[in-house]
């Protein structure tokens, strides 16, 4: 059985809940020797420092050793080696491969040819399942449930891979989504069709203010990037409309939490960092526990084994 993680799209509700329970174990005790003697490869054909550090920390804290590259310039890919050859070569050395690639579908292909499991750490604009999983974990952690939540997605909803994956993964949990974005970066029709297909309620809002977000359980902010606009006048016109300011939280629910996949530029005012609604740094920290769970699951280590683990370092 191929235990690779390419996408969360096919994961059942039970599987998602199972992975959350496993990540909770690692949150309690992140330092273990569960993977002692194993070797993890991190192959980053496209630089992504925070994702790589998070995966490498996850492996290191479980006692595994890590090999790999952080920069595609040092690999044979630049000499014309195919992805297949690189994957088959590295598979000879390691127990599992964590791969980031700039081409869409690279992870699926690697999972089909590699004799070891592949974890997709992002393939172009396609999928980034460990980010989605840590978003789900954080939502569960802050709300105590994934069910029946009001989730507000703000900023770049057109190119934002994380918001698309989150939307699809939440289909099991009866969410209501709220889309707040400039016209040029509005949620694509494909995903609205997806919502209708799975009976996911959604509303689109023109304004981004205290009243609109007062009903939110989760406020998921993303970066509006200048390079996404074909019309720079349009960018100048809308760029400040999707910035979150402290005074906009005046009517927010006490339990509401602000998430952001990071890096942030200016879309969340720095004064908000000290507000109890801010949760993006804890969210990033959860990436560690979630990635520990994803690596173990791909290696065939069960929740039961994690619970009965005698290698915990206190």
């Amino acid at each position: 059985m191929n235990r690779s993680l390419v996408t969360l799209a096919d994961h059942s509700r039970e599987k998602i809940e199972y992975l959350i329970r496993m990540a909770q174990e690692f949150e309690q005790h992140p330092n273990r020797l569960l993977l002692q003697g194993r070797v993890v490869a991190t192959l980053f054909f496209e630089p992504s420092t925070r994702t790589r550090l998070s995966f490498e920390t996850a492996a290191n804290r479980l006692g595994a050793r890590v090999i790999g590259f952080a920069d595609p310039k040092v690999t044979s890919g630049t000499k014309g080696e195919t992805l297949k050859d690189t994957i088959l070569m590295v598979s000879n050395y390691v127990d599992i491969i964590v791969m980031r690639h700039y081409l869409e579908g690279a992870a699926r292909y690697a999972s089909e040819i590699a004799p070891v499991p592949i974890i997709n750490a992002g393939d172009g604009a396609n999928q980034h399942p460990s980010q989605t999983m840590l978003d789900l974990y954080t939502i569960y952690q802050t709300q105590g449930t994934l069910e029946n939540l009001q989730i507000y997605l703000v900023g770049d909803l057109k190119y934002g891979r994380t918001v698309h994956s989150l939307l699809m993964a939440m289909r099991h949990f009866n969410p209501t989504f709220h889309f707040i974005a400039p016209d040029e970066l509005a949620m694509p029709e494909t995903y609205k069709t997806y919502c209708r297909q799975y009976n996911i309620r959604y509303e689109e809002h023109q304004d981004f203010d205290a009243d609109v977000i007062s009903g939110a359980d989760i406020l998921y902010m993303t970066r509006v990037q200048k390079e996404r606009f074909s019309d720079l006048m349009e960018y100048e016109r809308v760029k400040d409309r999707y910035l979150l300011k402290l005074d906009m939280l005046s009517h927010a629910k006490d339990t509401m939490r602000i998430l952001h996949p990071l890096p942030r530029v200016n879309e969340i005012e720095y004064a908000i960092d000290d507000d109890p609604h801010a949760y993006y740094f804890q969210q990033a920290r959860n990436g560690l526990f979630v990635r520990q769970a994803l690596i173990c699951d791909a290696l065939g280590i069960s929740l039961e084994q994690v619970k009965n683990d005698k290698t915990i370092i206190l």
Binding site: K84, Y109, N126
Partner: peptide, 28 residues
């Protein structure tokens, strides 16, 4: 940007709507 256009490999599509003729790339 699909892997199938950048790697010597066979393409693979799932037909999602036979009447409309809509297909989805297995990879990207």
């Amino acid at each position: 940007n699909c892997i199938t256009n950048n790697e010597p490999m066979a393409t693979f599509f799932h037909v999602i709507d036979k009447e409309q003729g809509a297909v989805r790339c297995h990879y990207c």
